[in-house]
Amino acid sequence: MTRRARRSFTKEFKEQIVQLHASGKPRAEMIKEYELTPSAFDKWVRQSRTRGSFEEKDNRTPEQEELIRLRKENQKLAMENDILKQAALIMGRK
Score class of each variant (00 low, 15 high):
1 M>L: 13
1 M>P: 08
4 R>T: 14
4 R>W: 11
5 A>Y: 14
5 A>I: 14
5 A>T: 14
5 A>D: 14
6 R>V: 13
6 R>L: 14
6 R>W: 07
7 R>E: 14
7 R>M: 13
9 F>L: 07
9 F>V: 08
9 F>Q: 09
9 F>I: 03
10 T>A: 03
11 K>A: 02
13 F>W: 02
13 F>Y: 09
14 K>L: 06
14 K>Q: 07
14 K>V: 04
14 K>N: 05
18 V>S: 01
18 V>Q: 07
19 Q>M: 11
19 Q>Y: 08
21 H>G: 04
24 G>F: 04
26 P>E: 03
27 R>M: 10
28 A>E: 12
29 E>D: 10
29 E>L: 10
31 I>Y: 00
31 I>L: 07
34 Y>Q: 10
35 E>I: 11
35 E>H: 11
36 L>H: 05
36 L>S: 02
38 P>M: 03
38 P>H: 01
39 S>G: 02
39 S>I: 07
39 S>A: 09
40 A>G: 12
41 F>Q: 02
44 W>T: 05
45 V>I: 15
45 V>Q: 03
46 R>N: 01
46 R>M: 05
48 S>G: 05
48 S>A: 12
48 S>F: 09
48 S>P: 02
49 R>Q: 05
55 E>Y: 08
56 E>C: 09
56 E>T: 15
56 E>D: 13
56 E>K: 13
60 R>W: 12
61 T>S: 15
62 P>Y: 01
63 E>V: 11
64 Q>G: 04
64 Q>Y: 05
67 L>P: 00
68 I>V: 14
69 R>T: 00
69 R>A: 10
69 R>W: 01
70 L>N: 11
70 L>P: 00
71 R>N: 12
73 E>M: 06
75 Q>A: 15
75 Q>R: 09
76 K>E: 14
78 A>N: 04
78 A>E: 03
80 E>P: 00
81 N>L: 12
81 N>Q: 12
82 D>Y: 03
83 I>M: 09
84 L>P: 08
85 K>D: 15
87 A>Y: 08
88 A>C: 12
89 L>H: 02
90 I>W: 04
90 I>L: 13
90 I>S: 04
92 G>S: 11
